[in-house]
Amino acid sequence: MADRRRINGPVGQTNPPIYDTPQEKRIAKRPGDNAVRKIFLKTGVTPSASGSAYLEIDDPFAIRPSGTNLKLTCTVHGPRALPRSAPFSPHIILSTHVKYAPFATRQRRGYLRDSSERDLGVHLETALRGAIIADRWPKSGVDIIVTIIEGDQNRDSPDYDRDEGWDMMNVLSGCITVASAAIADAGIDCVDTVAGGVAALAAQDEKSQPSIVLDPDVASYHKIFAACCVAYLPTRDEVTNVWFKGQLPGADAMLYNKMVERSLVACRNANRVLIQSLSETINPGQNVS
């Protein structure tokens, strides 16, 4: 039975537009393997929530001025008392929700959360749980809701069908950073600000040797072999979550370590943006650089 609480549209099947000519391949010149895309972060976008933040990652190859790759909003509600029916909990109970907007990706998303969204939610929860000082709020809960307004998929990417979900890595690292900013905005005590970062083993084109790149813009690579998303606490030098996906060639045993290390660099980068945006919230008008 169809969802009766929403407007479902026609009974027949609708198809997203199919184009007659394939998209010409973009010539994407990365500034370098170590380059990280620009991050825009702002807190306090939803005044009625306890804390909120908005994150945008810039697309360096955007044709249109508004063509950014990743847009996320996060709202934090709480800490608040758990319902009476809930069992006693000595620490704060985190509940994370990650949801794609229907217009966030190439394929229209439904309104019910699918498995990939639940997966992102679980990863986000483990990443944040390590940072929050949970014992300070017994018997209370906090809701962290991330809405993906635009997923990290490029509309002009040549391989329309081959979607291996690499963009989820970038989405997760964005989710971690934005949620951390929103938690700080809500005034929930943390040991440090968590930041997410991604490194990937990718090949630029068919002939080139795969190399480790930071913050991979999926559309501009020929193939991605493996990717690693890390949540990191820079001042304590601790990692709260690692998500590794893909296959590594067996010859180099250190490759895995190298990838994690490279993603830590991306994390530190994101953390710098995070700190700056938070200090701008505290002293508005004063340009902290």
């Binding site: 407007i7 009625s48 709202t75 934090v76």
Partner: peptide, 22 residues
Amino acid sequence: DYDLLVPNVELATGCAPNFLPG
């Protein structure tokens, strides 16, 4: 007749404390 317009409102984005997802 053919349901060509499908508007839907999503409030459960935590946009206010009383609208939570799930």
